[in-house]
């Protein structure tokens, strides 16, 4: 059998949906950030599959930028988590409603 682009798209969709579901059901802010990474990786896989299929390097360039943005997002997100958990140890995403004004 032949592995076509569709197989990679289905795998990317699976990773994206698993990450999104995890983001909704988990309460630990650190695990929620990891789920965002899962979603980004699903999309990366889709980009690389299209780059291969269309014989275009642009898809791989976009993945490069996604990596940079993911690194920046994790740095700022973890900074926020450290700042919040230092104030209120053992807090979960449900307890963070104090920011709603």
């Amino acid at each position: 059998m032949e592995i076509t682009t569709g197989w990679y798209l289905v795998l990317g969709a699976l990773l994206f949906v698993i990450g999104g579901t995890g983001l909704l059901i988990r309460r630990n802010p650190l695990v929620m950030l990891m789920c965002v990474e899962l979603m980004l990786n699903g999309v990366n896989l889709t980009f690389v599959a299209f780059a291969q299929r269309l014989n275009d390097i642009g898809g791989q360039t976009v993945v490069f930028f996604v990596l940079v943005v993911a690194a920046a997002e994790v740095v700022v997100g973890l900074g926020l988590v450290v700042a919040i958990l230092r104030r209120q140890p053992g807090t979960t995403a449900d307890d963070l409603s104090a920011l709603k004004g």
């Binding site: 569709g6 798209l9 269309l54 014989n55 275009d56 390097i57």
Partner: peptide, 11 residues
């Protein structure tokens, strides 16, 4: 799933 034209730049 792919409808676009293939690139000439190559990969």
């Amino acid at each position: 799933p792919v409808t676009g034209a293939e690139s000439v730049g190559g990969i």
